[in-house]
Design a protein around this nucleic acid. Structure first.
Lengths: 229, 229
DNA sequence: TCAAAAGTGTTAGTGATACACCCATGC
DNA sequence: GCATGGGTGTATCACTAACACTTTTGA
């Protein structure tokens, strides 16, 4: 079966920059390509958009197929379409940024036998296509987003300590923050609920656990409240 | 001549939300469609991406062809690709936001006889496709961008008064600003150069003219300076 | 008892906001 | 001389940034 058009059409793909956070460092989910071009190289999970499928739905589908990751936060990053970016011909890709709780999502072996694995953003391998540039772009977006919207919580487990949150924001911003000032500001937003629970099995004073109050944020947002860290 | 592929491909277009500023109000450049679907309706200028052409280049080309506008500021807004957005079939569009100095760019009659004209953003006609939603998205982006980067100057003539600049920022933000505070903040950035010249032929005290110091901004930016209005 | 991180306030400085009147010009 | 917008300063408040020690816990 083939498909015929009066004018040539670029191929259209989606690619996902999936950020996860673990042990104080940001990670990106990469697959190993099982076919040319760039066979054996690392690349972003992604693939072709189906004809009846919304772009975001395509991103979710490809992610589920290649990495087993589902139910995550997804946001469009933009289109990348320089003519030479794929050696097979003209391929335009719509890139998405995704955030997952590493604690909740064990990365499954990919359905099509290409391994999916987490890589620390500070030490990424060489990547196929223009994926290095796409990730750079995604990191910039993440740094902005983490400060202007409460999306850091998408990367943390449901229960987290203030230090967890601070380490995460520091990783996204790429610079250290003052502990007292950070805690003051975060708590003053009144979006964190302290739980009747503390850390367990730590060789030090156990830290208070918090959860993010989604409902309260939704209400504040409607009233024109502007989140900013 | 036809083109054949093993898998179906969506068509790929670019569309431009071109903002201009005149007489205290933001305007958007719209064309009138000369062919179905939506024949006779207003729409964003745009069209199909050529196979060997960068996405941004496609946007610039379509703009030049349809409206005669060239040499403008252009920034990618994002991809819009919901399956039902074009009645002819699956068409994914990459939207761009463009800013032009209305004073410099008389809008030419379009080459293909479809009229291009400016419409105030506060009173737009019904639009073809999902173009109303795309413009809404572009306005949000513009409001953010005008505050966080010195792009307001792309909309003003080379020589402008502080009141011109304030009216523009107010139009982009959709709310009024205090005159004294605005002037204080803008001048403290040290990016405006007062000229040896004032307004002419105004029935009131003539205002000081300024120009934006691009060079100085480029230098400051390199030193990590963060523009914010 | 030691190591490791949790938790906690104050001060100084900077930037944001609110606010009202005189001035210059063209008609 | 009048209508129109141009131009200017100060006081208050809120937020940011800098900074160090005591507490708790498990090993």
């Amino acid at each position: 079966m083939t498909y015929t058009y009066d004018y040539p059409r670029p191929a259209l793909t989606v690619d996902c920059v999936v950020f996860g956070y673990d042990e104080g460092a940001l990670h990106v989910l990469l697959i190993e390509r099982g076919a040319p071009p760039f066979e054996g190289a690392h690349a972003l999970p992604g693939g072709f958009v189906d004809m009846e499928e919304d772009l975001e739905a395509a991103a979710r589908r490809e992610l589920a197929e290649e990495t087993g990751v589902t139910r995550l936060y997804l946001e469009q990053l933009g289109a990348f379409g320089a003519p030479g970016r794929d050696p097979r011909g003209r391929v335009v890709t719509i890139a998405y940024v995704a955030l997952v709780k590493l604690s909740d999502h064990a990365v499954r072996a990919a359905t099509d036998a290409r391994a999916a694995a987490w890589h620390p953003v500070e030490a990424l391998p060489a990547l196929a296509f223009d994926h290095t540039a796409i990730i750079a772009c995604a990191r910039t977006r993440l740094a902005e987003a983490v400060r202007s919207r409460p999306i850091g919580f998408e990367l943390l487990p449901k229960k987290f300590t203030l230090t967890d949150l601070q380490r995460l924001v520091e990783a996204a911003l790429g610079r250290p923050l003052d502990k007292r000032n950070f805690r003051k500001k975060v708590l003053s937003l009144d979006l964190l609920v302290p739980l009747d629970e503390v850390e367990r099995n730590v060789p030090r004073r156990a830290a208070q656990l918090f959860r993010f109050d989604r409902r309260r944020y939704a209400r504040l947002e409607q009233d024109g409240f502007q989140f900013r860290l």
